[in-house]
Design a protein around this nucleic acid. Structure first.
Length: 260
DNA sequence: CGCGACCTGCAT
DNA sequence: ATGCAGGTCGCG
């Protein structure tokens, strides 16, 4: 269930489990994941050693001793779970990577939308600066947004603008920066760009420190400032939180303090 | 640009 | 039964 904090947490789990270990078997259980990692390709992982597990944006890369890398993207509902030695995998487990110390790292993904692939390291894709990176400056942001007339919220979901922002944190960061999600991306003035750059970094940094997760609207813990709070009072100004749909996805914002 | 597709499970 | 979900891609 991955926004960036969850992917980061998952990558740590994978790193702790797999780095320095040799792969003893790989089973890909669901046809959707077999498309990226057919059985024979999966088999070629046997005997390879995991040198490092890296995260860039929401994608993970297992660097292998053979020089190849295993790429994993969780999409909507992926996660890593560790299986006990005798434990039979839960229904939603889509792939299992067994390691030479008996550990089994399993891709748990109810919707089976995760994407696996194996190959030569790919020259860095078109990803913007990490959402937590100090290199995410107002001018860098301005440069990425200058030609875009799409609403700023939609622009923030574009991973080539900033890597790692998802639907929840796009709304959250704009709330923190007091910016109306509907304004065209290239209409932000200098002050707003400054607030947005620092707002994104602060929002993501805090979320990652807390190892934040979305538990659904029921739970007290893990509720957000505006996301999934339609009709509730803004915790900053008391006005009502609104919901709109942009590019087919829910956006939440405060009608009071997120002036354009 | 918006939208469906990719998948499944959950709430209504 | 319908609609919705934290992501991304490819189509029109």
């Amino acid at each position: 269930m991955p926004e960036l904090p969850e992917v980061e947490h998952a990558a740590r789990v994978a790193r702790a489990a797999a780095v320095g270990r040799t792969i003893t078997s790989v089973r890909v259980l669901h046809p959707a994941q077999r498309r990226g990692l057919p059985a024979r390709v999966a088999r070629s992982l046997i005997g390879d050693r995991v040198e490092a597990v890296e995260r860039r944006g929401k994608s993970q890369r297992f660097r292998l001793a053979s020089g190849r890398e295993l790429r994993v993207h969780f999409r909507m509902t992926g996660d890593w779970v560790l299986l006990g030695p005798r434990e039979s995998p839960p229904r939603a487990v889509r792939a299992i990577i067994a390691l030479d110390d008996g550990t089994r790292l399993a891709l748990h993904d109810p919707r089976a939308l995760s994407v696996l692939s194996l190959g030569a390291p790919e020259p860095d894709e078109a990803l913007g600066p990490e959402a937590t990176d100090p290199a995410l400056t107002p001018s860098r942001l301005a440069a990425a947004l200058i030609r875009r007339r799409i609403p700023i919220k939609v622009a923030l979901l574009d991973q080539s603008v900033v890597a790692g922002i998802g639907n929840i944190y796009a709304s959250e960061a704009l709330w923190r920066a007091r910016i109306d999600p509907r304004v065209p991306a290239n209409h932000l003035d200098g002050r707003q760009l400054r607030r947005l750059a620092s707002g994104i970094r602060a929002t993501m940094r805090i979320a990652m420190q807390r190892n934040e997760r979305y538990y659904g609207r029921e739970s007290e813990e893990g509720r957000f400032s505006v996301y999934d709070r339609e009709g509730e009072k803004c915790r900053r100004c008391g006005a009502k939180v609104k919901r709109v749909v942009q590019a087919g996805r829910s956006t939440y914002y405060c009608g009071g303090c997120q002036g354009s």
